[in-house]
Design a protein around this nucleic acid. Structure first.
Length: 119
DNA sequence: AACATGACGGACA
DNA sequence: GTGTCCGCCATGT
């Protein structure tokens, strides 16, 4: 268990239900802005355990990119998120502006995000 | 040790 | 908006 992995898991565990974070965002948040792929690797290493909300982590575009061939595939991730109330506007795609969690402003996020999308 | 791969991301065409 | 390429860096072979 490396400090990096511990940091990643600490952040992931903080993501509230119904919110998501991107790999790059997490990497940046823990001081390793170029380690987005390593964040993905940490999620990979969890092996689908439910001890950590790995399903709340996806790429910066808001799309699920995990491999289909794996047991805990993209369908599983999308299903888990939808079960938390996340709305996928497109197949395996969600609105990052609306659902992205911002730890740095967790007490300031208020309605600055997603309140102006109108239509 | 060298080379390929990947749950990523950003820059460019 | 989409498709490619390149940088990143831990793992796997």
């Amino acid at each position: 268990m490396t400090p990096f992995k511990q940091s990643v898991l600490t952040i992931v565990r903080k993501i509230p239900k119904g919110k998501v974070m991107s790999y790059g965002q997490i990497a940046k948040y823990i001081g390793a802005p170029r380690a987005s792929r390593e964040v993905g690797w940490v999620m990979h290493s969890l092996g689908g355990t439910l001890d950590f909300p790995w399903w709340r982590v996806l790429n910066s575009k808001g799309t699920i990119t995990i491999k289909e061939s794996w047991d805990n595939g993209p369908e599983t991730q999308q299903h888990l998120l939808e079960a938390e109330g996340v709305d996928f506007s497109e197949e395996r795609t969600l609105d990052m502006v609306r659902y992205q969690y911002h730890p740095e402003v967790e007490t300031h996020q208020i309605s600055l995000l997603g309140s102006d999308d109108g239509h």
